[in-house]
Design a protein around this nucleic acid. Structure first.
Lengths: 340, 340
DNA sequence: CTATATTGTCGAAACGTTTCGATGAATCGC
DNA sequence: GCGATTCATCGAAACGTTTCGACAATATAG
């Protein structure tokens, strides 16, 4: 068996408690004693056992990360990146992330994440739209809770948000500067607060410049994916006003739109400019490369982890709202409006 | 505080041990007693604490998942999918996956995953090319170990592999059936066993059909990504033989190749057919949609988890080698050879 | 030079389970 | 109907830490 704190104590001729004090960097240990203990620890190659620590200190050093199944199971690179951000940040602080998903139609008796039941996390991060019932339960359990890219009017929680509104503003302004005035907005489920804000950012910026949006918005789609982008663009052609540019509710939607444009032999960006949102890998892989609004996905995750750890270690649940600005990335899919 | 096993015992008027026996579904509990205990458990909403269980039973119900930083940090959708596969499968069996990465240049004193030091996993899964020193250490710790998409001649371990050889065979045969005979292979670092096998599958199938591969192989790239695909294809044009089809070492490489072809105004698939490997999302997002060899990524992860759990629960380390066949997926990027 | 505060160390209890060996009750074979 | 098995339950020890209160030794104040 691997050495225990007892072996260390014996080897350093001190008591168990003293070894524990050294391990945990507590004060009130004479320098000489500390050195002696540290020597014994490294001699024996001792590492405290997580399970034992957990039991004694009532701390797991795990953070739970929950999203809904549909956000993760079809490998949305968006949430995957956020998860990676949490993973890397957590490691710096000696935490692990326990990932799990819950169904959209959440039943608290069937679907409660096991790590909550087993008290196997010190705090929880929720990403994307998530059942409100779940939020209630976590708050009732008195666990520090951070929301990423979601917020509800009825719950007081810390949250880390994308500046969606500013994001589509940037997109629209970029297009206006390039001489566009007939700019459409497509794709996405409006019930997701983020998509909704993206639409609002588009609308407000258009109106601020006295541009009409009528028959240029096609977005109440069931999802926010490549097919919805394709369909919404088809509708735009069938039922919409003429346009020279498209703001897509995210990058995947934008690739769907590009497919539709290509089928109609419309050149990007000569005939129609298109801009996405999120900045996932695919932007670089399509032709032409997609201009977009960059979301700092790993950052979102990393900040959420830091907030969670703050909450865990301070024991006072402070409510912070962090808004991460988005950034315009100009590539090849946006250009001057035709005849301008 | 939440109820403990003690509260349950009191409520059901039995001893602690009996409750434990019921929880763990051990035999030798009278049906009547079992019912009584179960009632008490659900009345109180009792759930055993992971940390306490872990300490007493020396079992964590965690499985460690390790890959090298470069495989994960630039969010390769390939490994992400494998990870997801492990995640979902693990959940079915009441395990969690603890994910971590190690640098390519691995130093056992600096980079040893924390979950190994803290004995916080019952088994380990390694994915992709991984430092052999790490394999040694895990085996010495006597932990069940499963390799995914990697194997070394010097280590005896269980592994779950892709049939890379058969994969590129399928690709080449598909092209030959379409009248191609000048078929190139591009991109990828040969030092990765999987890439190497893909090359070998290509070569053997070409030779079996008496087709030459000379000046048609451009693949000793430093990495296996979009730029390497671009560069390799440029080289193919500059220094290679004429060709009408390309087998890329993976999908990302294929998108790089497509970019190069497009720059030269070469039509896909009319002038040149191209086929990738892996079947990641991007295949559906590029234009034309990419034909590829599909790898069952989630399956790889899921099988590795089952193997790991087998190893954990049987305590006898059986060595199994599972090879998952790949599958041809024909989309729009491959077609008849010109003038055939 | 006391009385008091501070510092460094320690022993023991606690955390919430599992598991082993013991025990008494019920069943079996003959 | 009696010893030998098997069954159901239990008490107690064990897992490896943290933490609390006690205590002696030392520093500080008056």
């Amino acid at each position: 068996m691997s050495p225990t704190i007892k072996d260390v104590a014996k080897k350093a001729s001190v008591s168990l408690s003293t070894v524990s004090l050294v391990i945990n960097g507590k004060s009130n240990v004479r320098d000489e004693t500390r050195k002696k203990v540290e020597a014994a620890i490294s001699d024996l190659g001792f590492h405290p056992r997580r399970a034992a620590r957990g039991l004694a200190s009532n701390k797991t050093n795990n953070i739970g990360f929950i999203l809904t199944e549909d956000h993760f199971s079809r490998a949305e690179p968006f949430y995957t990146k956020i998860f990676l951000g949490t993973e890397f940040e957590a490691r710096k602080y000696n935490y692990y992330i326990l990932l799990t998903t819950v169904p959209k139609k959440f039943n608290e008796n069937l679907h409660l994440p096991r790590f909550l039941l087993e008290r196997n996390v010190d705090g929880v991060i929720l990403a994307g739209k998530v059942p409100t019932k779940l939020i209630d339960i976590i708050q009732k359990a008195n666990l520090p809770l951070i929301l990423i890219d979601y917020s509800t009017p009825t719950h007081k929680t810390s949250k880390v948000l994308i500046d969606n509104h500013q994001g589509t503003s940037l997109a629209v302004e970029h297009l206006i500067q390039n001489g566009h005035s007939k700019i459409a907005f497509i794709g996405g489920e409006i019930s997701h607060p983020s998509i909704c804000e993206r639409l609002r950012g588009y609308e407000e910026t258009m109106h601020k410049s006295n541009l009409s949006t009528s028959n240029l918005i096609f977005c109440n789609e069931p999802n926010t994916d490549v097919n919805n982008g394709y369909e919404a663009t088809c509708s735009l052609f069938k039922k919409g006003s003429p346009f020279t540019a498209i703001v897509a509710s995210n990058d995947t939607v934008a690739t769907g739109a590009m497919r539709c444009l290509r089928e109609k032999n419309i050149n990007i960006p000569q005939d129609v400019s298109i801009i996405g949102f999120d900045d996932i890998e695919v932007c670089l892989q399509v032709e032409p490369r997609l201009s977009t609004i960059k979301v700092f996905k790993e950052e979102l995750g990393a900040i959420a982890v830091r907030r969670a750890i703050d909450g865990i270690e301070s024991k006072t649940l402070l409510l912070e709202k962090t808004i991460i600005p988005a950034e315009l990335v100009i590539r090849e899919s946006t250009g001057r409006a035709p005849n301008s």
